[in-house]
């Protein structure tokens, strides 16, 4: 069994920042784990600009990694299956197999989960062609596959807007963005794509029903103001209604003073800069605890 002073789950922006700050503070027994084959987390599927002001997610990751201390041990292609109260984690990976690792402090940097259609009170069938926005982002930017158009996007937050713009640029028709609130949900700079590419935004409305047996054929959109319902025929539906911190690994563990949450698994942040700051703070707090012997 291996022992590390700090184990960090997730090598996205928060995890990278946490590892680096703990190392720089003086900790030299750190294990950073990620389930993907590369470091960077969700940044890797972000082809749009806006990270550290003007970079793409991929460029931003490169910049983060340029300054990443070589001495920090990184374990990729490895999933953390569970965390137990005796301060061990169970890992499973192609290279390392199935293994138990113990630690003194644990930093959770697992990011967030997207809210899926399943958790929404949307009626209808469950055909192919319904995705979360982030899933499509990964499909397009990592797997180079496009969803079938025309597309309807439920939710007009940043991720929804970013995907609307990208799909239009890929030549896919975005028929509508459907927003529950009276106005668009995203940041101003992301909202610009609506007018630039003539993407219709239907506010005070929601998708009430999904249509189509095997494949999606359309969605029913209900307008709260007019109280009218219209069917929009489409082949893909992107659900972009929100994100929630992914704390699945610590369900049922209660509050433990050796677990430190940072980045989107703590609170969902609109900007990567805040994620980095939280990661750094978590790294330092964890190292402090070790030095003070808890």
């Amino acid at each position: 069994m291996n022992y590390y002073e700090i184990v960090i789950v997730g090598a996205g922006a928060a995890g990278i920042a946490a590892a680096k700050s703990a190392y720089e503070a003086g900790c030299n027994s750190i294990l950073l784990i990620d389930r993907k084959k590369e470091m960077g987390g969700i940044l890797l599927q972000c082809a749009h600009r806006g990270f550290g002001s003007h970079l793409t997610g991929v460029e931003y990751t490169q910049k983060l990694l340029e300054q990443f201390p070589e001495k920090i041990q990184v374990l990729l292609d490895t999933t953390v299956l569970s965390i137990s109260p005796d301060r061990t984690v169970i890992l499973s990976g192609v290279a390392i197999g199935f293994r138990k690792v113990s630690f003194d402090q644990l930093i959770m940097a697992t990011g967030c989960l997207e809210i899926t259609l399943g958790s929404l009170p949307v009626a209808g069938t469950r055909p192919e062609g319904v995705y979360t926005a982030g899933q499509v982002q990964e499909m397009v930017n990592i797997y180079h596959q496009l969803p079938q158009g025309p597309v309807v996007i439920l939710g007009s937050g940043d991720l929804g807007l970013i995907m609307a713009k990208q799909l239009v640029l890929e030549g896919i028709e975005v028929l509508a963005m459907v927003e529950k609130k009276p106005k668009c949900g995203g940041m101003a700079r992301n909202q610009r794509c609506l007018s630039e590419y003539n993407i219709p935004l239907i506010c005070s409305a929601t998708v009430t029903k999904v249509l189509g047996e095997e494949y999606l054929t359309g969605v029913k959109v209900y307008n709260f103001h007019t109280e009218e319902e219209q069917v929009i025929p489409c082949k893909s539906l992107l659900v972009a209604v929100g994100l929630c911190p992914d704390q699945t690994l610590i369900y049922g563990l209660g509050t433990l003073n050796w677990i430190h949450l940072c980045g989107n698994c703590n609170v969902v942040h609109p900007m990567v800069d805040a994620v980095i700051l939280e990661g750094q703070k978590a790294g330092i707090t964890a190292w402090d605890k070790i030095q003070r012997g808890n």
Partner: peptide, 9 residues
């Protein structure tokens, strides 16, 4: 109501 395996609100 409507399609097979469809739910009603």
């Amino acid at each position: 109501d409507g399609e097979y395996f469809s739910t009603s609100s």
